[in-house]
Design a protein around this nucleic acid. Structure first.
Lengths: 104, 104
DNA sequence: CGAACCTTGCCATGGATGTGGTAAGGTTCC
DNA sequence: GGAACCTTACCACATCCATGGCAAGGTTCG
């Protein structure tokens, strides 16, 4: 039941959203009701953590996944990171993101 | 001059945008004009490539950077990826992204 | 001087994301 | 049967990103 799932800190609405994006996909009862087992509950908590503590967005997770399975991409990104400066500038980007989150 | 830089496929507008985000930061002449050296031109081409071939967005690059310098984050993400299913669902996400790009 | 660049703003847009709401309708269980 | 759940399918919204455009003003150079 989504109600027990909502006890992980997500709204029922969000659970459906996460499912449509393939992030946390629960089994279904014959009636169509979603059944969240421990596995999914764990995923939900992990995901919540990732967002709260690091401000990770869904597309960023998808990207992390790509990095693992697309060596070409990974290489290109590494090249880029190596070539770009002292990375001090990146802090700005991250800081702004964190500020946004702190407001919320 | 931005004109030579625009020959890397970016509009002058975008060059300023990239600069404000710390992605490609050219030196400045005394007059304030931007001076793109080979270094920056290379970065611009690499960046262009990343976007064309892989649809990488700027925030995703920032994220890749974070992964390298925040071990905690990296660990959390790894945990997540390991715990989430066969990753077949992620394909959807990526496919949609690719579709978007192909249209453009 | 004047043309052709450049500079920094600021406003505007299209599309995506993350959320919430609501409506119309099944399921569970007392 | 009726309350309290659940389901899908929309509509809506604020925010952000990536771009473009325009205005007002410096710089370079013939």
């Amino acid at each position: 039941m989504g109600q027990a799932a909502a006890q992980t800190g997500w709204s029922a609405r969000m659970l459906r959203y996460l499912e449509t994006n393939g992030l946390v996909v629960p089994r279904r009862a014959d009636s169509g009701y979603r059944l969240y087992a421990e596995r999914e509950l764990g995923q939900l908590r992990t995901l919540r953590d990732l967002r709260e503590r690091f401000g990770v967005e869904l597309d960023e997770l998808a990207f992390a996944n790509r990095l693992r399975r697309e060596p070409e991409l990974k290489a290109a990104v590494e090249t880029w990171l190596a070539a770009s400066g002292p990375a001090a500038d990146w802090v700005d980007w991250e800081q702004r993101k964190h500020e946004r989150l702190l407001v919320a």
